[in-house]
Design a protein around this nucleic acid. Sequence first.
DNA 1: GATGAATGAGTGTTCATTCAT
DNA 2: CATGAATGAACACTCATTCAT
Lengths: 218, 218, 218, 218
Amino acid sequence: MPKVGMQPIRRQQLIEATLQAVDQVGLGDASIALIARLAGVSNGIISHYFRDKNGLIAATMGYIMNMLNEGVRARRQALTDDSPRAHLKVIIEGNFDASQVNGPAMKTWLAFWASSMHQPDLHRLQRINDHRLYSNLCCQFRRVLPLYHARKAARGLAALIDGLWLRGALSGDAFDTDQAVRIAYEYMDLQLAKQHTLGTDDQAADPTRTALANPAGA
Amino acid sequence: MPKVGMQPIRRQQLIEATLQAVDQVGLGDASIALIARLAGVSNGIISHYFRDKNGLIAATMGYIMNMLNEGVRARRQALTDDSPRAHLKVIIEGNFDASQVNGPAMKTWLAFWASSMHQPDLHRLQRINDHRLYSNLCCQFRRVLPLYHARKAARGLAALIDGLWLRGALSGDAFDTDQAVRIAYEYMDLQLAKQHTLGTDDQAADPTRTALANPAGA
Amino acid sequence: MPKVGMQPIRRQQLIEATLQAVDQVGLGDASIALIARLAGVSNGIISHYFRDKNGLIAATMGYIMNMLNEGVRARRQALTDDSPRAHLKVIIEGNFDASQVNGPAMKTWLAFWASSMHQPDLHRLQRINDHRLYSNLCCQFRRVLPLYHARKAARGLAALIDGLWLRGALSGDAFDTDQAVRIAYEYMDLQLAKQHTLGTDDQAADPTRTALANPAGA
Amino acid sequence: MPKVGMQPIRRQQLIEATLQAVDQVGLGDASIALIARLAGVSNGIISHYFRDKNGLIAATMGYIMNMLNEGVRARRQALTDDSPRAHLKVIIEGNFDASQVNGPAMKTWLAFWASSMHQPDLHRLQRINDHRLYSNLCCQFRRVLPLYHARKAARGLAALIDGLWLRGALSGDAFDTDQAVRIAYEYMDLQLAKQHTLGTDDQAADPTRTALANPAGA
DNA sequence: GATGAATGAGTGTTCATTCAT
DNA sequence: CATGAATGAACACTCATTCAT
């Protein structure tokens, strides 16, 4: 029963079977045979749609990352308030979206991270994604904070988001999204509060720049 | 060249070879044959000292975790200042100890996390370790903060530490320990600063308890 | 050279290679690699058709047992005489059929028996087969003998058949089918001869029943 | 704690551990390590007392066979009646002695038979034992039967004894010694009864000789 | 487009054997 | 005598991949 236009359907079918397989047995034991069985297709078809197993895994990660970005994008579009705080909240919430805190997604992320340490193509994907979070956060903080502090705040908030996600994923219990979001909000607010004491003048506020501009310490 | 009393030497030798192998090719591709070759011993010896591959991996993780705990313990012992802030700094620094931010350790941690999602024994090890960090932090925050805030601060700082570590590990660049420590210190200080506005009286300070005690909002 | 519909061909091919391997080196040393080599296929194909080595061995035993049953069935079908004696002769002859007294079959049976002591699935197969011989014999003896004597005759003849087969197999020499059949016939006839002195009335003929019916010895 | 005169003790200790191991996991899985553990000694000692594993197994079989012969010998010594029937009963009973119908012995016999098909030294041991039973039976039958009939009776009774033993061993249930002995006795008596119709004159009684002497059938 | 037969290298693991202590 | 450390080949089994149909 060969059909035309099956490509996107089959691809989606196989990606979802991959997530299911990783959820059940982990990436290491998610064999082509298991994935094909879960998808209800033959082994051979995978190489037809995704060159090889790595291709399928990369596509699966791309799918999850796309879900993440979509979650943020959709929330941003629904936004009426254009304040930095509103935008930051959107980013935080998007990172704890239901699409990211379910079993298959969490297990796949962890496996992906481990693999990215040894597979250049996955590592590239990983860096892009990591940078996007930092960049989005930094961009918003920058609207109210001097560059140095915006960067530090963005680094901190990105790490806090990832850390909350990580500890939630590893706990084995259901993910407590509310608690995670609350902690992230608080950090965001503490950073935003600096705007009232610092201004946005970069040079005055950046201790490293001052130090570098005055190497003699005079 | 069989000798008696080789057990501790061989075990250490094999654990180090495992770290080396994981560093080079990842846990998934760290075969018994590769580890044995790196250790300069035969394949068969591994089952002699560690029942099977899982035993070796569990022992390797135990070794890394022990290094982490030792790093904190040693710093704490060298402490002259008994303040919560000093203790918290020790915990933060210990978590970014050189033994934890090198390639082999970082790759092993990531692989361990991914595996712990599907191996009950590793998961148990993982939960113990996660809880230790939280518990240590909470214990110190509790000395100056009401319980609710101490818990929240501990959860936040634990997540921030893990997140900073994670993003540093995944970056692929050399780990910027100073930057990580600085961001963690700042979070710690922001949380400790609450002690001047909150006191340590639990019930007054806990918003959830207040809300519950006053459900009608009167 | 992958083809469709190869399953029955390959299965038969592999079963015959297994018999050949057992004949050459014994079941203990009949490795997957050897069997595959004898069959002229790759190692991996075995798990494709028979889950694992046990599956192949069970299938091989099933094949031999089927040959045995077929041997009896075919002889029975060719029968014009419906007497118990004729049927018993058929069973005896079937058990010394050429398919059962050749090297591969004899060695496989012996190995199977030894294995059946520790493998529940093989043991079940073994019991079914053992019971079939007894049951078939008993059924025929029952037509002319009281139940108690029919059972005893069937037990004896089954044991004699198996014992003749066993000693023939272990001797190392070519199997002397004629001698074995002659001895079994004689036992059969000695048992059948009882019909003229006993009748077929169960209760009168069964010494155990008589004893039980008359416990006081009156 | 090296002692003198340990040899026979250690050998016996290891043979019993071998029987225990075969009973528990079968000969195929009875590793040196397991046997040594069951005996409470080190792996290496086995090669000290029995060249290698085959040596241990051969010694174990020799031990069981010796038990069998001892069982017959002891019963014969206790005999007051010197009749052929009494001697035959002794042989039958000895073959169903408690030392031969327990789990370890039955499993070891079966494994031994299977191995004897491919190991010349075990095969030799096996033939000697098989022949001894036949020879003992034949010797007694010969006292009252012509040679041809004595041989046939001995072959039949040997087969019946082995077959009863085999089916009992394979059944998985407790061995019903009484039933087996009863069936064997009956066969023995049926054969002995021929003495009243045949006499002991070989030539008159042997149908094959008669046939050969009279090839024309006149 | 889709199947599943077939491959063969690679895996973890077991194990009899050796031998320095 | 006795130990147990060490070896390394052999094992069953898995798996991504290929390809004729």
